[in-house]
Design a protein around this nucleic acid. Structure first.
Lengths: 177, 177
DNA sequence: ATTTGACAGTTCTGTTTTAGAACTATACGC
DNA sequence: GCGTATAGTTCTAAAACAGAACTGTCAAAT
């Protein structure tokens, strides 16, 4: 499967993964949230090859997650800062960090703590229901198709070019989330 | 950088990414939360190559995210189900889906809706502070080193094998999250 | 006036990963 | 014995990535 196909699936998760679902992109975004803004900054913080870094930054700009803004003329230099769309990735980042804090720390404890400016305390992120405010867990949630679902009868059945091929080709059946 | 190195960084995010930070693993986990349990089920739902699927499933079992449980003898067959560690990934999945719902849907709307059994309503996931219950955003959070941080003076400086090499080799400086 | 250094990339080559397809193995139902 | 279901393994070609060097612009130091 190519990244492009993934982006077009009727599944919000697949589409998001198509944009941020590789390790370097996620690490670049970590740096963004830690206020890194410049090419050399990302490169030395991550040890990513310059080639890949340039490519990933371009992709993030194309996707509207980062904005490329000049910070000096002659020579022209730009920095990369998060757009609102990018800032909205924060819950994903926090959820990832929190799972790591819970399941991947060694004896020494957490590498980084998070303090909430409003209440002044170190906190954990908790995911709650927007309607009732209760914490969420997988078992308490029921998923059902929404307006953008493509499923069952509405599914576009590709017009085969004749008889059914005998190859064991297995194509993904459609799945939404 | 190899996945193994990533796993050993003093950063909860890097460690988590080392485990689930590739596109197939994330999609396999999506299927797990949608109650897929068997090899063929994953394969036909995702269109992943069988080779990669086998590899990813092994990795998830090694990491304690899935458990491989026999469901019949002769021929021996197993199914893969989420452990508690795996179920704890739910907030990450929901955060990813929600970002996609917000920023990646087409005109037709969301592919999938989520209903909270407790209150009966379709909901969005909201990330709040465990201490004061207020919704979180990137700007209201201050990060600072925790007990597991390796930084500054404590950093293990690799004993160079002699004189400083003249190559332009750039190694990642350490960064925690 | 030439050299050095910072910055932001691009180009090159070789290795690793992944895609796509076929093959293996065990057992069941007919 | 024959086809089907399930869960893999093996093979080759294509794509992605790592590691290193190179390009180009300008400022400051020698």
């Amino acid at each position: 499967m190519k990244w492009k196909e993934l982006e077009e699936e009727p599944c919000s998760m697949a589409r998001t993964i198509a944009v941020i679902g590789d390790r370097w992109t996620l690490l670049i975004l970590r740096e963004c949230f830690l206020r890194t803004r410049r090419f050399e900054g990302f490169q030395s913080a991550l040890g990513i090859t310059r080639h890949l870094l340039a490519e990933r930054l371009k992709k993030l700009v194309r996707q509207g997650i980062l904005r490329r803004i000049p910070y000096q003329e002659s020579p022209k230099r730009h920095e990369y800062i998060l757009t609102q769309k990018g800032l909205d990735l924060y819950p994903i980042m926090m959820a990832i960090v929190h799972w790591g804090d819970t399941h991947m720390v060694d004896e020494r404890g957490r590498p980084l703590l998070h303090q909430h400016r409003k209440c002044g305390k170190d906190f954990d992120p908790v995911m709650v229901c927007s309607e009732c405010g209760e914490p969420l867990s997988a078992r308490e949630v029921h998923t059902h198709p929404g307006p953008g679902a493509r499923g069952g009868l509405l599914e576009k059945s590709a017009p085969e070019t004749g008889k059914t091929p005998q190859t064991k080709k297995t194509k993904a059946r459609s799945r939404a989330a």
